[in-house]
Simulated scan of single mutants.
Amino acid sequence: MTSATLSPLSEQERAPLLASLPGWTAVADRDAIHKRFTFADFNAAFAFMTRVAMQAEKADHHPEWFNVYNRVDITLSTHDANGLTQRDIDLARFIEQAAATLAKR
């Protein structure tokens, strides 16, 4: 892990990165991003969480999340950096790819 991956993104750096992640929004009162995902049922939501968990473990970067039936709420922030970093953007991109394969139809 490089020091750059643990440096919070500046406003200039984050704007274009967040623009490439539709639906992700800033969290009020904290340097983090959030998105809600909805799937067809619990099995699809759990499959999604499993894919994300495996990638998060590999990257040693774990999301904050909450699941109820077919809904998964995810918040990303790098706690070691006290803010949003490239690690969060990278994980958000993976999350988007995983969600696309299981999206509610």
Rank of each mutant, 00 (worst) to 15 (best):
1 M>N: 12
2 T>N: 14
2 T>M: 08
3 S>K: 12
3 S>W: 10
4 A>P: 03
4 A>N: 11
5 T>F: 14
6 L>A: 08
7 S>T: 15
8 P>S: 07
9 L>Q: 01
10 S>V: 04
11 E>Y: 09
11 E>V: 09
12 Q>W: 08
13 E>N: 10
13 E>A: 10
14 R>H: 10
15 A>W: 05
16 P>G: 04
16 P>H: 13
17 L>I: 02
17 L>T: 04
18 L>Q: 02
20 S>T: 12
20 S>W: 09
20 S>C: 09
21 L>R: 01
22 P>E: 11
23 G>C: 05
24 W>N: 04
24 W>P: 00
25 T>Q: 14
25 T>N: 11
26 A>P: 14
27 V>T: 01
27 V>A: 03
28 A>L: 12
29 D>C: 03
30 R>S: 11
30 R>P: 04
31 D>P: 02
31 D>L: 06
32 A>D: 02
33 I>D: 01
33 I>S: 01
33 I>E: 01
33 I>N: 00
33 I>A: 02
34 H>L: 13
34 H>I: 08
36 R>I: 13
37 F>N: 11
37 F>M: 07
38 T>F: 10
39 F>G: 00
39 F>E: 01
40 A>C: 11
40 A>S: 14
40 A>N: 13
41 D>F: 05
45 A>Y: 01
45 A>I: 03
45 A>D: 06
45 A>L: 05
46 F>Q: 12
46 F>C: 05
47 A>R: 14
47 A>Y: 09
50 T>W: 10
50 T>F: 02
51 R>C: 08
51 R>A: 03
52 V>L: 14
52 V>H: 00
52 V>N: 00
53 A>D: 03
54 M>R: 12
54 M>K: 06
55 Q>L: 11
55 Q>G: 07
56 A>R: 10
56 A>E: 05
57 E>Y: 04
58 K>F: 12
60 D>R: 10
61 H>A: 10
61 H>Y: 05
62 H>S: 09
62 H>I: 11
62 H>G: 02
63 P>C: 04
63 P>Q: 08
63 P>F: 09
64 E>T: 10
65 W>I: 02
65 W>K: 00
65 W>L: 03
65 W>T: 01
66 F>Q: 07
66 F>S: 13
67 N>C: 07
68 V>R: 13
69 Y>G: 06
69 Y>S: 09
70 N>M: 06
71 R>F: 09
72 V>T: 05
73 D>C: 11
75 T>V: 12
77 S>P: 04
77 S>K: 01
78 T>C: 03
79 H>D: 05
79 H>I: 06
79 H>A: 08
80 D>A: 14
80 D>E: 13
81 A>V: 03
82 N>E: 13
83 G>H: 03
83 G>S: 07
85 T>F: 00
85 T>R: 00
87 R>K: 15
88 D>C: 03
88 D>Y: 04
88 D>E: 05
89 I>Q: 00
90 D>H: 06
91 L>V: 06
91 L>Q: 06
91 L>G: 00
93 R>H: 14
93 R>V: 12
94 F>S: 02
94 F>Y: 11
95 I>L: 03
95 I>M: 07
96 E>T: 11
96 E>D: 14
96 E>M: 06
97 Q>M: 11
98 A>L: 11
99 A>S: 08
100 A>N: 15
100 A>C: 08
101 T>E: 15
104 K>H: 15
105 R>N: 13
